[in-house]
């Protein structure tokens, strides 16, 4: 079982997964874009601007999901000292930052025609901006500090403090009066989004997931090579 998790087995598995994602990604991307830009109907109040939702919502979800994973692995790494989690977190963070930035930018482009403003200091928008700052601090910890132990400590602290912001983002639209609309899709309970819009949203979510997985695998592969390169120098 443990032999399966050796770097050589993980490396060959990563290569297979990259090849698999490469082979299906563009097909799913084209299907997603066709649904999002052509086939899905305009909203009865927001008109065609609702199409921005198909990139804004998956980006925001994955921005939050990446930070949740980083927090969980940081806590586990802090307690159990599992070195692989350090490399996984290092590989996930840039993807989370990109998705969070995209959620903010596309949200702003959605806000202008819908609310009449690019930006408002309301709870949801501000808490997303705070998440972006935590991602930047987290990545800077890897870039600026030296020594794996100190990086693990500082980055874990940043992740744990930053995780306090995650429920604030999720429930901000319920706790405070915000410009941002409440969640249309609920994990528990009925969602108030029509299937003609839900399907394109789910396809675009799959596109974002595959893209995120592809970047993660490439970055993780780079980390494995980096370790192997260090080992070569020791010979």
């Amino acid at each position: 079982m443990f032999k399966f998790f050796s770097s050589s087995n993980i490396y060959s598995l990563i290569q297979k997964l990259i090849n698999f994602i490469d082979s299906i990604f563009f097909l799913i991307l084209i299907i997603g874009l066709t649904f999002a830009l052509v086939l899905s109907p305009p909203d009865y109040t927001q008109g065609d601007s609702v199409r921005i939702m198909y990139v804004h919502v998956p980006a925001a979800w994955l921005g939050l999901a990446c930070f949740s994973v980083i927090t969980l692995l940081s806590v586990l790494n802090f307690i159990f000292k599992i070195r692989n989690f350090y490399f996984i977190n290092k590989s996930i963070a840039p993807i989370g930052l990109l998705f969070t930035c995209l959620a903010i930018i596309t949200g702003s482009l959605w806000g202008q025609p819908t609310w009449g403003t690019w930006w408002a200091w309301d709870a949801r928008l501000t808490s997303m901006l705070v998440l972006m700052l935590f991602y930047i601090f987290y990545i800077l910890a890897f870039k600026l500090l030296s020594g794996e132990e100190i990086i693990v400590k500082v980055s874990s602290i940043i992740a744990i403090i930053g995780s306090i912001n995650l429920p604030i983002i999720k429930y901000s639209v319920e706790w405070w009066t915000t410009l941002h609309q409440p969640a249309s899709i609920k994990i528990v309970g009925p969602s108030n989004i029509h299937s003609a819009m839900l399907l394109p949203l789910l396809v675009m979510l799959l596109v974002f997931l595959l893209y995120g997985a592809l970047i993660f695998l490439m970055k993780y592969k780079t980390e494995i090579i980096r370790i192997k390169k260090k080992n070569l120098k020791k010979i």
Partner: peptide
């Protein structure tokens, strides 16, 4: 034109595709 929302919609999708391509 997307009923007047074209600028916002196309700009959103372009920014997403471009930045994802750059990171890739």
């Amino acid at each position: 034109a997307m009923n007047g929302y074209g600028l916002y919609v196309w700009l959103s999708f372009s920014i997403v595709i471009l930045s994802c391509a750059v990171l890739y």
